[in-house]
Amino acid sequence: MARAILFLATLVLASSAHADGGRYEVLGDEIPKPLTDQPGDPARGRAIVVDRRKGLCLLCHSGPFPEERFQGDLAPSLEGAGDRNTPGALRLRLVDSRRVNTDTIMPPYFETTGLHRVAPEFRDKTILNAQEIEDVIAFLATLKTTGGSR
């Protein structure tokens, strides 16, 4: 019995440590602290944003990606996202947009709670991992309409 309880406790610990989501602190409209020690890489972030199976961003958003033919029109353009949002605000929107707008259609990229009927292969997994989130933020931060980083 005691062994069974211990075993269960380890399982719970292991699974909460395994789940990638949930390890962040929200302050106001931001998650000010990066999710990883390693700074984000904008080039890798761009690749994630345009990847329709990974980032999925262009399903809904358009942006300054002249080589991408089919871009969605269900969300604001990502052009200038780095002007409108601090890195901490971008982080909150990527991690869990429901925190900003409860009716949002933007998927929660780093949260696994409050979801229903998730397919088994995606259950308890976040859409992006912590480093990928930081990479995307580093890239979005370069999207300025002023100062031209493109």
Partner: peptide, 25 residues
Amino acid sequence: ERPIGQLNLSCAACHDARAGGRLAG
């Protein structure tokens, strides 16, 4: 009307609110 899946989208989100819009292509 209930959001489902890892992407957390309902049928209504696309077919009621955004019919006529473009999901990528």
